Simulated scan of single mutants.
Amino acid sequence: MNTIAIYFGTDTGRTRRVAKLIAQKLGMRAQPPLNINRVSVDAFLANQVLILGTPTYGAGQLPGRSVDLAQESWEEFLPRLQGRDLSGRTVALFGLGDEQKYPSEFVAALSLLRAAVLACGARVIGAWSAEGYSCKASPALIDGRFVGLALDPINQASLSEARIDAWLQQVLDELET
């Protein structure tokens, strides 16, 4: 299996911490995680297997300048992927949000990441059950499953590590199929 590239967007550092934990758990199977604002499109396209992470801002937005981040993030990077070919690549997604404060937008940015990589031809794996969450109306929910791992570090922090472990096992199993 190719090594797994892990890219994330962040402002507060929470998504970076999750990306680092994922990399640690994957060990030699993963490259060190990088903030997407430090990645060129060519470097991104050089990977066959990617894990992409994002928080959700405001009304379901990706991190970026329009939500007053000091640096560029997914919002600025994704348009650079338009028209690029990601066929043959596999992508798994994870997202952070607050399902109590923003129940209708919980991890909604995952749906934007998913749409962008699917439009470029990538295979997306790692859909995650909505069981155990109170959120029922997020754009990131399709048929009772989130389009990637959904984490709530505010209200369900104690569940995050076990969810990451289970999700990573699921992703590794899906990579084999």
Rank of each mutant, 00 (worst) to 15 (best):
A43C: 00
P79R: 04
Y7E: 03
A137G: 01
A23Q: 09
V171M: 07
I164Q: 14
S40V: 02
S73N: 14
N2W: 00
E131Y: 01
V18R: 03
G53F: 02
L21V: 08
Y102R: 02
D165M: 02
A46F: 03
D173Q: 15
C120K: 03
G88P: 09
I4Y: 02
R114Y: 11
T12A: 14
D143S: 12
A116P: 04
N2L: 01
S134Q: 15
L21P: 02
A92V: 03
A140G: 10
E131M: 04
T10N: 15
R145V: 00
V18Y: 07
R16I: 03
R14I: 09
D165K: 10
V18L: 09
L62A: 10
P32C: 04
I125M: 13
L69M: 15
A92I: 08
E75R: 13
G95Q: 09
A109I: 07
I6A: 01
P55T: 09
G144Q: 10
K101R: 08
D11N: 12
S129W: 07
A70Y: 13
T10H: 10
G60V: 09
G121E: 02
I6L: 10
V39H: 03
L45F: 05
R38P: 01
F106M: 10
L96G: 12
S158K: 11
D68Q: 14
A119H: 13
A5T: 05
V124G: 06
F77I: 04
R38A: 13
G64C: 06
W128I: 00
F8V: 12
G121C: 06
P103D: 04
S40H: 00
G132A: 13
S73E: 09
A116F: 04
V91F: 12
Y102A: 02
C120D: 01
Q156C: 00
C135K: 06
V117S: 03
G132Y: 14
A150M: 11
T10K: 12
L34R: 15
P103F: 05
T12Y: 14
S134I: 09
D11F: 07
L69K: 14
L69H: 14
L86A: 04
E76I: 04
G60D: 06
L149N: 03
A19T: 06
P153C: 08
V39Y: 06
R38E: 15
E75Y: 11
A116G: 06
A30D: 08
R29L: 13
E131V: 08
R84P: 01
T15M: 11
K136T: 15
G27R: 05
E105W: 15
V49I: 13
A162T: 12
V107P: 01
A166P: 07
N35P: 14
L69Q: 15
T56C: 08
